[in-house]
Nucleic acid binder design. Structure first.
Lengths: 331, 331
DNA sequence: TTGAAAGCGCTACCAT
DNA sequence: ATGGTAGCGCTTTCAA
């Protein structure tokens, strides 16, 4: 099933068939011929060979997306969004899932072999590492969920606003001693969330107390440990930077015999099915992660089309999803 | 950077350069020439254009993997395994994440456009639907985590043995009234697990009581609802078909004021990070999902190389990971 | 409005 | 041991 077959069956030249089937803008083709070719191609179930087409056009109509982990709901849903946006514009998505550290190799390989027209990249690596990795890219790229100073297009979530929103929920419930389980020190998102936490406190006229901030990173274990260290400060509420660290912290609270939310409330950033699986179900601030993937893909495709960059503003947080883990402050 | 450039720089013909760079078996090339070409290619950072190569060879050295969901830890780790195995054999992996229902279209598109040499497919659809979908495939394929009667190569986990292993843990702890939260009715894995549950009971001389079996499907909500319906039977232990339904069931137990594991024990099949995030941490039977991906990719690659099928036996369950959710039977 | 033909970069067959 | 060359299936420029 090649273009030549279709052309022959339709009694026209390959070039004519090609023009029609590509839906070329300037359709210098008689309507009758056009219809006939289309009909025959349909009947023969013709599908163009993307290799041949790509070889000729030097494009693949494929976007690459490289993520550090697949089972992370944030990336899973970003991929989903990117896939949808890409499909709408006629692009496919090549997903590349790589361990941190292999990113450079992956980017180099995927971009230097004409497999993709552009790259969507999410990375947990440090700025410098990421910068080096990206230097290997031979195609345009868009960063997801992080900013790399002085470089590239990127699409980020407004973590600061999200953290503030979480704190506001707690202060509205009367909480004053609110702890914060922060993310990785030095990380872009961690910094943003910490700032949002402070914003939220300030808005309620509560002084910032660094003894109420612990570094939990992005693991359950980190949350458990950091929460344990925070317990002596007797917070009545906790804002965790992620769902996972919130879950880890809840284990500590349970162990300590504290009742949630009667004795202590806890809220996480990012909403996902797992929030409902915890006990009690976790109140959380939803984040538009799928939208992030969608916007990133869109941005990249526009860049590929030669349009100008035009940076995108941080995506505002989604809804506050109130579940069982937050309640009025004690007393 | 094309092969012609390398050949020119090395002062040889393209065909010679091609032979050397492909590491052709019959290296009818003088050692000196070989080394020179290799060195120059290295210096020039030559990488073959996979489109051109694929167009010529009618192969892409790419495997497609189609999964119904990305954020499911089972599929995420199967993908990981497949990716590793594929990479070892020089294949890339094209991940295609599709909603149920779109599977047929995806398979058709991906396989009929010479994008992939073969397909790894995981599906939650019914047998008939899946059969229809696969009929659209124009390339060899291997099924993951399910069997389609009368068709194809597949790699499955030994769910039956896993369920039995779980029950044995419970009976060893003295439990006699063990409930089972089953998967989707009519599903292959659900059937296997139910059978394993019965095997385990039989091994301990406990009579099967269908009133102790509830259908929870594969969602937390299903687990919650099914567990609620089972409570009047006063089980002292529960075997859940999945991690997710176990989590859902735990919410019901907490609500009912039952203490885990003092009043009731619960165990899930499949181990994943989320098991540690629950409270108490969930005892579970690990399943070799990454291995499944690895074996499936291997099988497919061997099939592509023209080797004979040779079906693979179900992969035995991994370790029993004892955490806080199981304990001795009451009294 | 349609056709002819070159050529994308590579492999593999056939010569030498 | 090495070179020449056809051709994979398509797009695109140029000619008719």
């Amino acid at each position: 099933m090649t273009l030549a077959d279709v052309a022959r069956a339709a009694g026209v030249d390959m070039s004519t068939a090609s023009r029609v089937l590509r839906g070329e803008a300037t359709q210098r083709v008689r309507e009758e011929t056009r219809v006939r070719i289309l009909k025959i191609a349909e009947e023969m179930q013709y599908l163009a060979n993307p290799l041949a087409r790509g070889l000729r056009t030097q494009r693949t109509d494929t976007l690459g997306i490289v993520v550090p982990q697949l089972d992370n709901p944030v990336f899973a849903s970003a991929i989903r969004g990117a896939e949808l946006a890409a499909a709408e514009r006629g692009y496919s998505l090549l997903i590349s899932h790589r361990e941190p550290g292999e990113t450079a190799t992956t980017i180099a390989k995927i971009s230097r072999t004409n497999r993709v027209d552009g790259l969507l990249v999410a990375s947990l690596d440090d700025d410098e590492v990421l910068r080096t990795d990206l230097a290997a890219a031979r195609v345009p790229f868009v960063l997801m969920n992080r900013i790399l100073p002085g470089a590239a297009l990127s699409v980020v979530l407004d973590s600061r606003a999200a953290a503030r929103k979480g704190v506001e929920h707690l202060t509205a419930l009367g909480h004053r001693r609110i702890a914060h389980l922060a993310g990785r020190e030095g990380g872009f998102n961690a910094r943003e969330r910490l700032q949002g936490y402070r914003d939220g406190l300030a808005a309620a006229g509560i002084a910032f107390d660094e003894k109420l901030v612990g570094v939990a990173g992005y693991t359950a274990e980190g949350g458990t440990t950091a929460m344990r260290a925070l317990l002596p400060q007797h917070p009545t509420a906790v804002l965790a930077a992620t769902l996972v660290s919130a879950a880890g912290a809840m284990a500590t609270l349970h162990e300590a015999g504290l009742r949630i939310p009667e004795d202590i409330s806890i809220i996480g950033l990012h909403d996902a099915p797992v929030a409902r699986m915890l006990y009690p179900a976790l109140t959380s601030v939803a984040m538009p992660t799928e939208e992030m993937g969608r916007v990133a893909a869109d941005l990249l495709i526009r860049a590929l089309a030669g349009e100008e960059p035009e940076p995108v503003a941080p995506l505002p947080p989604g809804a506050l999803v109130v579940r069982g883990s937050t309640g009025p402050a004690p007393h």
